[in-house]
């Protein structure tokens, strides 16, 4: 039995999430001593051969009217049909918003044991056992499943990607979907020119210490210099200084970037819960007693309005 991987694309393009899913699936298949098959939906404008660098050499493309816009039932049902036709018993999904919508539907349709919020590659494949985050990263636990069919949803950025050599061949495929509950997409509003938070490798975040939305230009400048996404604390989103989709923390988006820079955020336990998986944390705060310093790798006690411009200058010098 092979491993199947849902290779998401965004308007025909693959992103780091896609490659991470490919690599997760390829490594899982290797542990199981089997092969991996990728599935992607809609019209692909990127070069699918790239997927081979992450260990997936066989990719099926299902296109046509059914897949022009995202419909979680159609994707889930198609994955189930492909899994059956290709003898796959394990599905790997990246925990993007779309992935999280598809996976539970798939698990019911395919009668699959489902493990979500996964932070590592499987520690064992018989039975399939993986570590997952619980209590908003305040704890971890190994889950295993002995179900004959399985689906794993990993947290984006959890395992990372390393490009190797290899190439993939993509072939057209088709399945019959049958009657499914329907949703119809009427509008897609994607912010252009910004790095979506769940996939950002570096994140610059601001809190109440920045005093007002008019002071975010330095956060954005820093983010641009570091090729980072921008984020904020809960109070900042609740006051309407920044949009809700930038709120990171327990009830916002949980992130695990390489670098998290927190400016003017005290580090309440609810905030730490969403960001503590960041590999490196820099905290800039005027209050030396701010609890965030205990969770930081690098700390700077100082006025954000003096420190951040200096940080920007130092980065420009470094990049020059």
């Amino acid at each position: 039995m092979s491993v199947l991987v849902y290779l998401e694309n965004w308007e025909g393009k693959f992103k780091k999430n896609t490659f991470e899913a490919a690599q997760y699936a390829a490594k899982t298949a290797e542990m199981m001593g089997t092969s991996v098959i990728g599935v992607t939906f809609g019209t692909i404008s990127d070069d699918a051969a790239e997927l081979g660098k992450y260990g997936v050499s066989k990719v099926l493309n299902l296109s046509g009217d059914d897949y022009n816009s995202f419909d979680n039932y159609k994707i889930a049902a198609a994955l189930k049909e492909v899994a059956a036709a290709q003898n796959c018993d394990t599905l790997i999904v990246s925990g993007t918003f779309n992935g999280k919508a598809v996976a539970p539907l798939y698990s019911v349709m395919a009668e699959a044991g489902m493990i979500t919020n996964v932070t590592e590659l499987p520690s064992s494949v018989a039975p399939l056992t993986v570590k997952r985050s619980v209590f908003s990263s305040k704890g971890f636990v190994n889950y295993s499943t002995e179900a004959s069919s399985k689906v794993i949803v990993f947290i984006p950025n959890a395992v990372g990607v390393v490009a190797g050599s290899g190439s993939a061949e993509m072939t057209e495929s088709n399945v019959s979907l049958g009657d499914l509950p329907q949703t119809n997409v009427t509008n897609v509003d994607r912010v252009q020119g910004k790095i979506p938070l769940p996939e950002a490798e570096r994140v610059i975040s601001g809190g109440r210490g920045l005093k007002g939305p008019e002071n975010w230009s330095m956060v954005e400048e820093l983010a641009e210099l570091m090729n980072a996404g921008t984020a904020c604390s809960k109070p900042v989103a609740d006051m309407g200084w920044r949009p809700h989709n930038e709120h990171v923390g327990q009830t916002g988006i949980a992130i695990n970037p390489e670098l998290y820079v927190a400016i003017g955020i005290s580090g309440a336990i609810q905030h730490l819960a969403g960001v503590s998986n960041s590999k490196t944390i820099v905290v800039i705060n005027s209050d030396a007693e701010a609890p965030f310093f205990k969770a930081a790798d690098y700390g700077i006690v100082g006025d954000a309005f003096e420190v951040v411009p200096k940080f920007i200058e130092a980065l420009k010098k470094f990049k020059a």
């Binding site: 979680n72 039932y73 889930a76 925990g95 918003f97 999280k100 919508a101 996976a103 539970p104 539907l105 698990s107 019911v108 349709m109 489902m114 979500t116 919020n117 985050s133 619980v134 209590f135 908003s136 949803v153 509950p181 329907q182 949703t183 327990q250 009830t251 949980a254």
Partner: peptide, 23 residues
Amino acid sequence: IDYNGGQVAGMLAALLNQPFVNA
């Protein structure tokens, strides 16, 4: 916010065969 499974809503939709909108 305890087990962060994100499973119940979607599974419930599929068990009832009803449309599902997540997040």
